[in-house]
Amino acid sequence: MASEQEIEDAGQLLRDGGIVAMPTETVYGLAAHALDADAVAKVFAAKARPSFDPLIVHVPDADTAWSLVAIDQLHDGLHGLPEVLTQAFWPGPLTMVLPKREFIPGIVTSGLQTVGVRVPAHPVAQQLLEAAGVPLAAPSANTFGGISPTRAEHVTVECDAVLDGGPCETGVESTVVGFDADASASGVVVLRLGGTSVEAIEAVVGGAVAVAKPGEKIASPGMLDRHYAPRTPLRLVDRIEDLDPASLGNQRVGLLSLRGEQGRGMGFAAAEVLSPSADLVVAAAQLFEAMHRLDRAGLDLIVAQRVPDRGLGRAINDRLRRAATA
């Protein structure tokens, strides 16, 4: 676990324009001073990230978030929603996309007039934000499109420091929401499924939310069709039992499943079980780590089985579908 001195040193690096891998409750992020365009450019370069994919800005509290955005520019009737969501889900794995203040560099928002903001719950992230004293733009600390890191040792991109905060508790990226009075009964649109479930959001806002389709106009991180992918090809199936062994040939094939009951006797070279008790919260926390292990196993193919499409299962299936997109 990162020491107080390491965190203080990392805060200074960030103020000086460096980039630091930091833990959050979702995944490890590659952080830079969000108001320093040159520093943010280093993040894009380290990740080989396309400039049209916006970043999320991490802040220590809601008051800091409000200083970066212009809620009054939201459509009438939507002004109160950010505060409602803040009280329910911050700190935690929820990002809100809101109209930005003019001083936020365009490189952070990919030229959009909106910015994603969130308050992370991880204690090391909170300590780093305090030590740095600046908002931090921080996408996941992996090469663009690859598997997100959920442990410090998963971070392979070059940066000035890596802060070890242990394994990430949530294990999938934050849910990203935007606001559109015409899109749903509640006015809330889920732009990216993630660590806060759609059902939990609907319970708080008191109405149905819309879920954006992958590949729609990019308004937040994680909206590209192919994302979160291992180097090893991944095939997504509904039922392992329906898999034709002949279609696998002589390949070394790994299995990724929820409970581990499926695929016995089918000769898989490696297998990862997300949760023997079928707990979708546990499964979400284990997803990227399991993908990392399979990706290091010298396989020709990974076969992944969809999980029940409810709660955090929707986010798990979203990540698997994107990883399997050619």
Rank of each mutant, 00 (worst) to 15 (best):
E153P: 02
E153F: 01
T156I: 03
E158N: 15
E158V: 12
C159S: 15
C159L: 01
D160S: 13
A161L: 11
A161F: 09
A161Y: 04
V162W: 01
L163E: 13
G165Q: 12
P167N: 10
C168F: 05
E169Q: 14
E169F: 13
E169N: 06
E169T: 14
G171E: 05
G171V: 08
V172W: 03
V172T: 12
E173N: 11
S174L: 06
V177M: 11
F179S: 14
D180K: 11
S184G: 04
A185N: 06
A185K: 03
A185W: 02
S186A: 05
S186H: 04
S186K: 10
G187R: 02
G187T: 06
V188P: 01
V189F: 07
L191V: 09
G194I: 06
G195N: 14
T196L: 12
T196I: 13
S197P: 05
S197D: 08
S197W: 06
V198D: 07
V198F: 11
V198I: 15
A200E: 15
A200I: 01
I201D: 14
E202K: 05
E202W: 05
A203C: 07
A203L: 06
G206P: 13
G206A: 11
G207M: 14
A210V: 10
K213W: 00
K213V: 07
K213A: 15
K213F: 00
G215H: 03
E216R: 07
I218H: 09
A219W: 15
A219H: 15
A219Q: 15
S220D: 14
P221C: 11
G222M: 01
D225M: 01
H227P: 02
H227V: 08
Y228V: 11
Y228N: 00
A229H: 08
A229V: 05
A229S: 06
R231G: 15
T232R: 01
L234H: 01
R235P: 13
L236N: 08
L236E: 04
V237M: 03
V237H: 04
D238Q: 11
D238S: 06
R239W: 00
I240L: 04
I240R: 01
E241W: 00
L243K: 03
L243W: 00
L243N: 10
P245T: 02
A246W: 01
S247L: 11
L248H: 02
G249C: 05
N250Q: 08
N250A: 14
V253L: 02
V253E: 03
V253R: 02
L256D: 11
S257W: 05
L258Y: 15
R259V: 08
G260V: 10
G260H: 11
G260L: 04
E261T: 12
Q262M: 09
G263M: 06
G263V: 05
G263L: 05
R264C: 05
G265F: 11
G265P: 07
G267F: 11
G267S: 02
G267T: 09
G267L: 12
F268S: 06
A270K: 08
A270Q: 14
A271T: 14
